[in-house]
Amino acid sequence: MKPHALVLFSGGQDSTTCLAWALDRYQHVETIGFDYGQRHAIELECRPKVLASLRERFPAWAGKLGDDHMLDLSILGQVSDTALTAGKAIEMQANGLPNTFVPGRNLLFFTLAAAVAYRRGLQVLVGGMCETDYSGYPDCRDATLKALQVAIGLGMDTPLVIETPLMWIDKAETWHLVERLGGTALVDLVCEQTHTCYIGDRSARHVWGYGCGQCPACKLREKGFDSFSGWRSDKRGAAELARE
């Protein structure tokens, strides 16, 4: 029997891409989200809309998409003092890390996801962590997650695999992956319905989606989409020349 997966699904671009990747790969996929007092809590409102749209627009995936789980992790917001859990300016800290880094966040996410996966009989955990253009978060590193996979497997006496399909690709390549998985329909869904802005601003619609346009997450998304759009234009131009 093919493995079943649990996707860490925030409602943002990367986790939506990972969800599509898992639906394309596994026969049964469930999702899990965390309410940790994040400043951009608007992402939690996007989650059910994205899930509903995936079921509606991609019939081949609808039958694979199982239960969604939401956990209250407000304690994380209580013990942290970051720009993602408080209304403060985004800046670099003396230790060289941005103050958008929430200490322990991904470690807790995966540990709790593993507990749910254990109960649900799911063998694979999927997360959107990335080293290529990440914001300097040490808990997004491949080495961190490989070590965590070993610890979780030992602690639960169950082989659970952590998959990170975005680990070695940048944002432009992430957009390419979205298109390969679901075509223009999935690109449009990601632009229109996901949320990635750190500030939680959903008042402005850009070509790449909603956001403030100024925070690091928005700038990365915009840069990646511009590169992706340029590639698409070049490809169309080459195709037109070939037809002439």
Rank of each mutant, 00 (worst) to 15 (best):
L71Y: 08
L71W: 07
L71I: 12
L76M: 15
L76A: 03
G77D: 03
G77P: 01
G77W: 00
Q78E: 01
Q78P: 00
S80L: 02
S80C: 11
S80V: 01
S80N: 15
S80M: 06
D81V: 06
D81H: 15
T82V: 11
T82A: 08
A86G: 11
E91T: 11
Q93R: 15
G96D: 08
V102S: 03
P103V: 09
G104F: 09
N106S: 03
N106V: 01
L107I: 07
L107C: 01
L107F: 05
F109I: 10
F109H: 06
T111W: 09
T111R: 06
T111N: 14
A114G: 05
A117L: 07
Y118A: 09
R119W: 12
R119V: 09
R119F: 10
R119M: 13
G121W: 10
L122R: 09
V124Q: 06
L125V: 13
L125M: 14
V126W: 02
V126A: 05
M129A: 15
C130L: 12
C130V: 11
G136H: 10
G136E: 13
D139M: 04
C140P: 02
R141Q: 14
R141F: 09
D142P: 00
D142G: 03
D142Q: 12
A143G: 03
A143D: 12
A143S: 14
T144S: 14
L145S: 04
K146G: 03
K146S: 04
K146N: 07
L148P: 02
V150Y: 07
A151G: 13
I152A: 04
I152K: 03
I152R: 00
L154K: 13
G155H: 10
G155F: 08
G155D: 07
M156I: 04
D157T: 07
T158S: 10
P159I: 07
L160K: 00
L160P: 00
V161G: 01
V161T: 15
I162M: 05
E163F: 04
P165N: 08
M167W: 10
W168A: 14
A172N: 03
A172I: 02
T174S: 12
W175L: 08
H176L: 13
H176Y: 07
L177G: 10
V178D: 12
V178T: 15
L181C: 10
G182T: 06
T184G: 06
A185N: 10
L186K: 05
L186N: 05
D188T: 09
L189P: 00
L189F: 01
C191P: 00
E192M: 09
T194E: 04
T194Q: 02
H195R: 12
T196C: 09
C197P: 04
